[in-house]
Amino acid sequence: MAKGSRQAAWEFFGVELKRRREDAGLTQVELGIRVFVSGGYIGQFEQAIRKPQLDVARRIDESLQTDGIFERMWRGLIRDQRYADYFAHVADLERSATKICDYAPAVVPGLLQTPAYARAIYFASNPLVAEEYVEEMVQARMDRAEVLADPTRPLYWAILHESVLRIPVGAPAATSQQLDALTAAVRARRAMIHVLPFSAGAHPAMGKMMTLMEFDDAPPAVYTEGVLAGNLLDDPAAVKRAQAHYDLLRVAALPLEASLTMIESAARDFERCAPTN
């Protein structure tokens, strides 16, 4: 679904939500209490500023007795078969974010991956899968990355643990090219990338990836991910705590130029390991 038509569909979701709520004689605050969100969130759903999560859509159906219509609309709008169910909403939020801050403990964040690097990751986790499926997943990841090439792109900040630079993903040449792509993104001013070196020792997010997102007309959110599961949080206290962790990581990370030097050095190490023709 094209971006414009998707937004129009979400606007219809909001209009229908407002109509059904008013028919039930409920204010935004009253419906919010019933579905465990604030009245302000209900207003943002109705204006298509923020999209509800699936459990909220289900509770709206229960509260308004709408026979599952909002869950069905949610599934038709938010679910993209190219993404895992737990990540589809995050991919949608990336398109409207004004600022994205990633912390990556082991692999390059998806928005910065090259096709060869992404392909190697998919094959590593799905060694027997059909190549056509992998290519579709890689293309989905490249489509996501277009958000950083858009003129209205969000401010993007990434902190990479040094492990990201040292773990070979695919052939040495693929890893080298991926690292070169990171420095190119910084030089082109599409991203700010810092490295958290091994020497930094223990830190607040050990082994845990996280993505912080900010928006013009909606509260910030944080996304964390484990094995076959993800967690999107917009509770103010949780987001504030995640932001504090990210600030500590930023303090412990190397300055920009020192980070680029380390990334470039790692790229050359992998390049020397690549076979020559």
Score class of each variant (00 low, 15 high):
Ala266Trp: 04
Pro236Tyr: 02
Tyr86Asp: 00
Asn231Tyr: 09
Pro109Phe: 14
Gly32Lys: 11
Ile167Gln: 05
Glu162His: 06
Val227Thr: 10
His161Gly: 10
Gly76Ser: 07
Asp61Tyr: 06
Leu232Met: 09
Val169Leu: 01
Ser163His: 13
Lys3Gly: 03
Arg34Ala: 15
Trp74Ala: 02
Leu232Cys: 05
Tyr86Met: 00
Val251Ser: 03
Ala97His: 11
Gly207Glu: 13
His245Gln: 11
Ala252Lys: 11
Met137Ser: 14
Gln47Ser: 12
His245Lys: 02
Asp55Ala: 04
Tyr117Lys: 13
Ala8Glu: 13
Val147Thr: 09
Arg58Ile: 08
Val129Trp: 15
Val164Trp: 02
Val90Glu: 00
Val108Ala: 03
Phe270Pro: 02
Gln243Gly: 12
Leu160Asp: 01
Asp234Asn: 14
Leu260Tyr: 02
Asp102Gln: 08
Ile49Val: 13
Ala173Gln: 07
Leu111His: 03
Met209Ile: 09
Ala188His: 08
Leu254His: 04
Glu131Leu: 11
Ala97Tyr: 08
Ser96Asn: 08
Val186His: 06
Leu148Ala: 04
Arg190Cys: 05
Ala97Trp: 08
Trp157Gln: 06
Arg189Trp: 09
Val35Arg: 06
Lys18Asp: 13
Ser199Tyr: 13
Ile167Tyr: 01
Arg6Ser: 06
Leu112Val: 05
Pro105His: 03
Val186Asp: 05
Phe45Ile: 10
Thr261His: 10
Asn277Ser: 12
Ala145Thr: 02
Gln47Asp: 07
Asp216Arg: 11
